[in-house]
Design a protein around this nucleic acid. Structure first.
Lengths: 136, 136
DNA sequence: AAGGTTATCGCAACTGTTCGCAATAGTCGG
DNA sequence: CCGACTATTGCGAACAGTTGCGATAACCTT
């Protein structure tokens, strides 16, 4: 069962606009912003409105096809959910970002679950701080 | 040496507007948004523009008097730096937030420092996930 | 293949935040 | 205390992102 069928099974429709959003995300290697996606789509389909892209990212997230992460301050970054999970270190000073394996974050997740009953999604937000270069 | 003198020593000026921002933050028990601060100030000083509040929060942060945290998705929250540090758990579903002692986050900070040379500021961003109630 | 239902769209208006600029007002030296 | 210097302000416009709404088109049924 493809994405389209899955969406229909959930009362949603597979539209040109949605297909385009998924296409852009498939081609994108890293986390992308909604604005990037919108710009990329508008290059070939100028009539497609940014608001449609924003709404579709949310819709696709509800079905679990994409997820978002808050890397640094206020920008939301999107990626397809089938790419491997990982954590993020973002340098407050130089803005560089580094991916880290989820296993480093596991002990914290386990502890939060045990002591607070909280199921942390540690891939969802980044850890802010100073990278090796900027700290020295 | 008070805040005012410290600011002057850094080539900045202590203005009515800045004093008001600090006052609001002193009275606020928890993390506050720039909009809240602005609204609160405008109640008694309607001529003070929101942009001034935004600029002053940044200026005061540069000197280390206030810090900001990104609790849930897109809102920036501010507090005075002299209030005690703590981590944050934010529920993605019900929006509730819980403060946790920094020591829970310490092991992760230590590991990121050792293995990646990264000095994490774990009070700066929240951990997103599902709270006990929403997870069950 | 055609028609009805309604999820989705494009648009325009709106929110919260940032920016450029001329006017204002803290600060400092005399 | 006064005048000069310039950081800071208020304003208006710009900005990214969101929302309401009437029009459109994807889907289902026949």
């Amino acid at each position: 069962m493809g994405i389209a069928d899955d969406m229909r099974a959930n009362g949603m429709r597979m539209t040109v606009q949605r297909r385009l959003v998924l296409d852009v995300l498939r081609r994108a290697r890293h986390h992308t912003t909604a604005e990037d996606i919108s710009r990329s789509i508008r290059a070939s389909h100028p009539q497609i409105d940014p608001s449609t892209v924003y709404r579709n990212l949310e819709a696709l997230e509800r079905l679990g096809y994409v997820t978002h992460t808050h890397l640094d301050d206020r920008v939301t970054r999107w990626r397809r959910s089938d790419s491997p999970q990982h954590g993020h270190l973002v340098c407050r000073k130089c803005g560089s970002e580094e991916d880290i394996p989820m296993q480093i974050l596991e002990p914290l997740a386990k502890r939060l679950r045990g002591e607070h009953g909280f199921r942390a999604d540690l891939a969802h937000s980044a850890v802010v701080g100073l990278c090796r270069e900027c700290a020295s």
